[in-house]
Design a protein around this nucleic acid. Structure first.
Lengths: 232, 232
DNA sequence: CGGGAACGTAAGGGAATCGTAAGGAATCCG
DNA sequence: CGGATTCCTTACGATTCCCTTACGTTCCCG
């Protein structure tokens, strides 16, 4: 009942990118695919995926650069894709801070397996410091996705599973506007029809719990005619 | 790090075992080598290495069994050795709780690299008292993983193997929310389907034994719609 | 300005989820 | 081998909360 993890795949070979995307989606993950490093840096400046699958050899900005850049900013887990002949690069990439690597040509199934294991370690049972980075702090609002605890102005707030999932999605994408159908897709993630007013109701419940004044929201803002956004 | 980490290698092919030992020693680690699973279990009942390199296919007691046994008792990192043709076994071993795996035939250099990376991840994070201590004390609750004894409010409580394993996992990760599938994966560690209500039942049994009032749990809390967490 | 669309709010029913007890199968030990 | 213990499944009752609905409020556009 939680939001599937978001995987960013950065791979310039379209056939590999496509197969990777298919297998990861089939495994239940949300997947974004980019074809070059510069696009990846742009993306990562705005988004925070749960894991990055990153080709070492990319045109322009290469995998090592992206890894370095990302490592300076977050503990988002990285799985490096590398060709067999590049063992030394492989080792270097690995010790640069990538969480794992897969040698091309690779079985998509192996990749899924490694994604799953890395995510399990970083989002699951691990007590590593990576876990500590899942605490998102804003002015007067703290969200810890490991413990599913939320504090508003220093007070612990009890959210239901759905409320937490909704808030968690919004705070991971500050200022991004989501319409109701997007939120239903990303948070509810179900195929059958759900009335969009459900989102409205859940937003109200969230506001009731975390806003200083729910009738004049500070964090969860309505974008009239579109949807909602989180303002940090 | 004044004492080099101790690596246990369990591998029945003498040539592989010897090369592995040489490379790991050359990389600066202390290495113990054993040729079969039963010997490994004996060893592990007495010694606690910093990392285990474990062949999946062993005569007698196999690698999966050892992994399961070890995982129920400690967080010692495990690197699984597996042959290429055994991809499904590889995947299963990986998801059983092994920290990494290497496909035979492998470059010893790759293995050293992975050993280094896994140790970096696990020992870098081991400043957490939750991982370093064998006796965990909380208010009114003491868990000794060496003796597998539990005391609740000064009284010794008899737990079954499964009950202890479940409690042990939870208390090692205070406040971390685990869903039922995660608990099945981490505590039960089996690949065939087990009904998630099994977790519910075991939680109830645990609560019955350790909680002051099992109907109003103090330690093992339900996160509705998600799973459970341990509140210290 | 007025009307319609979109949003906010509160309440209730139903379904999903959780808790509990019991039974059968598997395992262990004397 | 037989009895005791453990584990998992199952059935059913209890609890929680999620979604829908109805109606009031706000916003936007003609």
């Amino acid at each position: 009942m939680t939001t599937p993890p978001l995987i960013l795949v950065v791979e310039d070979e379209p056939s590999i990118a496509e197969v990777t995307r298919l297998y990861l989606q089939r495994a239940g993950y949300r997947v974004d695919v980019l074809g070059d490093g510069a696009a990846a840096l742009d993306y990562l400046a705005r988004e925070m995926p749960d894991l990055v699958v990153l080709d070492l050899m990319l045109p322009g900005v290469d995998g090592l650069e992206i890894t370095r850049w990302l490592r300076a900013r977050s503990d988002t887990p990285i799985i490096m894709l590398t060709a067999r002949r590049e063992e030394t690069d492989r080792v270097l990439g690995f010790e640069m801070g990538a969480d794992d690597y897969v040698v091309k040509p690779f079985s998509p199934r192996e990749l899924v397996s490694r994604v799953r294991a890395v995510l399990r370690r970083t989002q699951g049972a691990s007590s590593s410091p990576v876990q500590a980075q899942r605490v998102l702090e804003f002015e007067g609002l703290v969200i810890d996705s490991n413990t599913r605890q939320v504090h508003a102005r220093g007070q612990e707030v009890t959210l239901t599973a759905r409320e937490f999932d909704l808030l968690h999605l919004l705070v991971r994408h500050p200022r991004q506007v989501f319409n109701r159908d997007q939120l239903l897709d990303l948070v509810w993630g179900v195929n059958e029809f759900i009335d969009p007013s459900t989102v409205t109701v859940h937003v109200r419940r969230l506001r009731e719990k975390i806003e200083p004044d729910p009738s004049k929201p500070r964090y969860i803002l309505t974008v009239w005619g579109v949807g909602y956004k989180f303002e940090p």
